[in-house]
Design a protein around this nucleic acid. Structure first.
Ligand SMILES: [Zn+2]
Ligand SMILES: [Zn+2]
Ligand SMILES: [Zn+2]
Ligand SMILES: [Zn+2]
Lengths: 153, 153
DNA sequence: ATCGAGATGTTACAACATATCATTTGTATT
DNA sequence: AATACAAATGATATGTTGTAACATCTCGAT
């Protein structure tokens, strides 16, 4: 059983535990994101699926399925890049914490990390001082990935 | 001379100093954003201008003008919300530092702030640990504004 | 076997954004 | 003032992203 199948297996378990179903189409979309090493736009993902599985899924379905996968925390939407990535922790058993994302603006590679809680709290304090209230600690940051740093050097 | 005119005056000076021109159309678009108390999408801004000035500017122009105003740091694009705001520091004489934005998800009000450099550095360190390199410290955060906090309470 | 909820298909369209070429306007040079 | 050039805007078309509305299918429970 390869890596991808192992992740899919976990995702299936996860859905079963939540009383939802990881259907064939949903599995195809999720696999598209898992197999990609970078974030994909909804339409890139659509093209990928159609090439990969020789079907012609409507755009509507991809959006519906992405919404489902997001609700299940199996996929994350990156508003900063307008793209989607598979969650990096599908195979983990711990509860899913609020993630932060490092997005390579050169190649769309994404790293899902957990910023130090102390740093997050400082941010929250800065926001409070300004009179606002932070409602999500999901940060998205414009970065360069390892590969693209080297290439640029 | 009212507040808006004072800001426009500064913007004009700023452009002159950079060898660029704040034309009538550009001024209209900038005034649209200055007069708005919240971030506007390109098309909301287009509608606003057309209603306000009784013309029918093509969408193309609004995008071109927004790009110009961004380059001049008179306007900021918020990728997280896919909207635009006037810079909060047009009337300031100091150089424009990299800003951070607090975006109210309820009402689109935006506050442009400067996070503590120490906090920013911690963030940068967290990113480095992950092997990535932060290429912009312009953060955008999902928040509630003062008004919407009260309303929710 | 039947039924109902959930999932997917289909069509149409709204909202967001850019490419390209034509025309106008503002400025510099003569 | 006439000319000439560059910058700005207009006009048209098209590409990209996302959703509304309604029809059909499919799975699982009774
Ligand atoms: Zn995740
Ligand atoms: Zn990269
Ligand atoms: Zn600013
Ligand atoms: Zn608000």
């Amino acid at each position: 059983m390869n890596h991808v199948d192992r992740i899919i297996g976990h995702a299936e378990q996860h859905c079963k535990a939540h009383g939802t179903r990881l259907t064939v189409k949903r599995k195809q979309v999720l696999m598209g994101l898992i197999q990609s090493d970078k974030a994909l736009s909804a339409y890139e993902l659509l093209d990928f699926c159609n090439r990969q599985y020789g079907e012609k899924m409507p755009a509507m379905s991809v959006y519906r399925i992405l919404e489902f996968l997001e609700d299940e925390h199996l996929v994350h939407k990156l508003s900063l890049a307008n793209k989607y990535v598979a969650c990096a922790h599908i195979v983990c058993n711990h509860a899913h914490a609020v993630p932060q994302f490092l997005i390579c603006r050169q190649c769309s590679k994404v790293k899902e990390i957990a910023i130090e809680p102390a740093t997050i709290n400082e941010l929250r304090a800065n926001v409070s001082e300004a009179g606002f209230k932070l409602i999500s600690t999901q940060l998205e940051m414009n970065c360069l990935c390892e590969g693209c740093i080297e290439q640029a050097a």
